[in-house]
Amino acid sequence: MPPSLFACGSNGSGQLALGHEDDVASLARCAFDPSCPASTEIVDLVSAASHALLLVSTASGTHLLGAGKNTHGQLGKQCALSCPTAATAFRPLALAREAGLGDGWSPARVAATWTTSFVVYERGEAGSADREQAIVSAGSNDFGELGVAGTPDGPVVLDVLRAGEYVEHLKGGQRGPQRSQRVVGWGACRRGELNPVPAPATASRGAKGKGKAPARAPVSLPVTVALPIPAGAHITDLALGAAHSLALLSNGRVLAWGSDLKGQVAGLDAVNDVTAIAATWNGSYGSNTHGQLLRRDSDPRGRVALEQPTTLTAGSEHILVTAGGKLWSGGWNEHGNLGVGDTADRAGLVEVPVPGAIRRVWGGLAATWVWSEE
């Protein structure tokens, strides 16, 4: 039996796997193709502009499923042949085989940017000497988000991991992912998203005599991101916006770098005791013992108090919070992604009707996903 997975929001490419390509403003049950393996457990999920990736576990192992359009090859060659228009129900994907990894590899983590997919595959038992991992990317490479040069013909294996390294976090922003403990990033970096150290304060003269800051490289292949992590601390989570990045440290502090045009970075280094972070395209959010830290133009560090907050999740421009067994949402709602039955934006958090008991919540690009126990 497939898991009880529900979704709402933008669905113009069938990426919500609802059996059609229309937006929905209330949570609706996702569909699974008969070719999917029988499963009841979800490992992880991610959704982007026109596709979604879903990891499910079965008695035989972990499997990768996908839904939506495959315009840029983000669902792989097999999906392009079996479903040339849009997959409006989840179906199995074969990115490892198409990338040339061979047999024995199982998907372990997923991430996505606008029209690009990233999957961590592994083989061998955890803790064993023969354990291996590989990162596979597939889809658009307009901003270098595949992590390779040129335009490959299908999914590729990234040359990112060093010997003995294993992926702890894999996050996708809008133009490229990052991971840690050695944080590696690639893709667009016009606003310093891959370089937390400010550029030197030098200037050059333009044609009209005006000073101009040194130009940053617009895109990057995989590079190590140098973070000022204090002694005794380590990264516990990463969150990416459209042009800024956040890292949560084990000591409850937050590192933030990249664009600050919306006030999404300045002042975060002064916040203490943070237990969770999230980022929308233009905002930064955190949870601590006093409630949710919401960044607003009028109030750079506004707080919303919630009883027993348990999770904090960000979509592209909306926020999801579970508290007391209930789901709350707020922010941008053009596609009905808040799940409250309409398309009106919400300046505060409102309760979302959820069928059954909540097991896990995900935010996507103008989309909300809920795995429930009915």
Rank of each mutant, 00 (worst) to 15 (best):
L227Y: 05
P309L: 01
L221C: 03
N272S: 14
S204Y: 05
A305E: 14
S284L: 06
T224F: 06
H234I: 05
L293G: 02
P198I: 01
G291T: 01
P230M: 03
V219F: 00
A305G: 10
L306M: 08
V225C: 03
V197Q: 13
G232N: 12
A270K: 13
P228S: 07
G258N: 07
W281D: 15
K210F: 11
V271I: 14
D273H: 10
S245K: 04
G209Y: 03
L248V: 05
V197D: 05
D269K: 15
G258K: 12
A305S: 13
T310N: 03
T224C: 02
A226F: 09
N251L: 07
G267K: 12
G211E: 07
L227C: 03
E307I: 00
G232T: 10
L248Q: 03
A215K: 08
G302H: 13
D237S: 13
G232K: 14
T311N: 06
L248E: 03
K208D: 05
G302N: 11
G286E: 01
G241R: 03
T202P: 03
G211L: 13
S204D: 06
R253Q: 10
E307R: 15
K208Q: 14
A213P: 15
S284Q: 06
L249I: 04
L261Q: 13
R301K: 14
D237T: 11
D273I: 10
L248P: 08
T289I: 08
A266T: 11
K262W: 10
K210D: 02
A278V: 12
H244Y: 03
P218E: 05
G302A: 14
V304I: 08
S298F: 14
T236F: 07
I277H: 11
N251G: 06
A242N: 12
G209T: 09
N282L: 13
N272Y: 05
L293S: 04
G241P: 07
A242Q: 10
N251K: 12
A233N: 13
R296N: 04
K262N: 10
G252D: 01
S245F: 00
A201P: 06
R205K: 15
S204G: 09
S259W: 01
H244G: 04
S220E: 00
N288E: 01
V219R: 10
A233M: 11
T236C: 07
